[in-house]
Design a protein around this nucleic acid. Structure first.
Lengths: 203, 203
DNA sequence: ACACAAGCATACCGGTCGGTATGTAATTCG
DNA sequence: CGAATTACATACCGACCGGTATGCTTGTGT
């Protein structure tokens, strides 16, 4: 009774939808493909989600955000050495051997680029996630500013905005170039930028 | 005889296709919309372009690249004070009052994000343009390195890669946030990064 | 055990998509 | 001027799209 059958079906749909959307974008994502991949039918899908848009929004809320939270937001939020953690996350991201990230890009960024100008609901939800990201980075910088690790003249909000933007930019360029090597190079530069915010180049 | 009728028709199609693609992306771009906007018919379109893909590739080659060349590549290439010109371009981009750039994003980046994983032809052409961009920035840095304006320990290739990536990242984030103000803030940070490559923070 | 709702399958719909076959008007060239 | 090619218009096609109506099956509460 803990996990009902219906929840499993919903979950299968969400995951398949995420994969399909990640691969083709939302508009080009095919309901038929999702059903083929899950082995389910339209009856199942439209029982759980009234429209394709609703399915997309659910993917954003329950898959995309959860992933980013687990991989980035949460580690940043709970870190005692925020900037160091940020640098670690940037380095890890730059060393990703999982091609998925490089080949298909960041799901959040992909959806933002495609859907934000087209659909208000998408835009709102995606920007909320993005603002959480920025807020976590800004919080990390501010905490280490108070701790004397980050220079006192740094505009933490602007820096956080830039870090997230550049981050997504690096992923995007690496994706289009399909180059793991360039991605590493690029993230290394971002690393340098973050380091330049510290007091004397240390940590 | 200088501009034949047929060239005008082709040009109208190219421009309308560019607008439609810029607005909806390539896959969601509707042939019907392009024809509606131009007042032409399928006969005209498929006379000049055998397939939709061909039309898209022509848009890339003859519109997107030409725009970037006129606005960025060419000024960089012909500048006697490369880094200063680069900073000026970044500032200008950050102060763009034309909402088009912010609302719809960079055509090159939009297409790269959407099409590079899906179509080899698109990927090749788009990456070629991107590599020109990087090469121009790298050249600018190298020339000013030789001139003693840029620090000697700077990895110009990596820095150029990062500058272009961050640039596109800033445009992308600003687009999804639809925020001119944040875009300005973000490009200002990029400005600072470029400045940090100079010898003593000057120029 | 029975009623009733939830979960899911099947068949079908109108609309739009990119693409094509064919016809006609305009242009070029011998 | 006449023939042939170019430049376009019109009508139509099959495929796929998201969405719906309907019915069967399974589970749930009493």
């Amino acid at each position: 009774m803990v996990t009902r059958q219906t929840d499993l079906t919903r979950d299968k749909l969400l995951r398949a939808a995420f994969d399909e959307i990640h691969l083709h974008g939302f508009q080009a994502a095919s309901i038929a493909n999702i059903l083929r991949d899950t082995g389910l039918t339209k009856g199942a899908l439209y029982h759980h989600f009234p429209t394709k848009q609703t399915l997309g929004l659910a993917v954003i809320d329950e898959v995309v955000e959860a992933q980013l939270d687990a991989w980035i937001f949460s580690p940043l939020r709970e870190s005692g050495q925020p900037v160091q953690t940020l640098l670690k996350l940037i380095d890890e991201s730059g060393r990703k051997t999982e091609l998925e990230t490089i080949v298909l890009g960041c799901p959040l960024n992909n959806l933002m680029q495609e859907m934000s100008p087209l659909d208000e609901e998408f835009k709102t939800r995606l920007n909320r996630i993005l603002s959480v990201w920025q807020a976590e980075v800004e919080g990390a910088l501010k905490r280490d500013k108070k701790a004397g690790v980050v220079r006192s003249d740094v505009d933490c909000r602007a820096a956080a905005l830039f870090i997230v933007s550049a981050w997504e930019g690096c992923v995007g360029i690496a994706k289009s170039q399909q180059s793991l090597k360039n991605f590493g190079l690029c993230m290394k530069q971002l690393h340098h930028y973050v380091q330049s915010l510290a007091v004397s180049g240390e940590e």
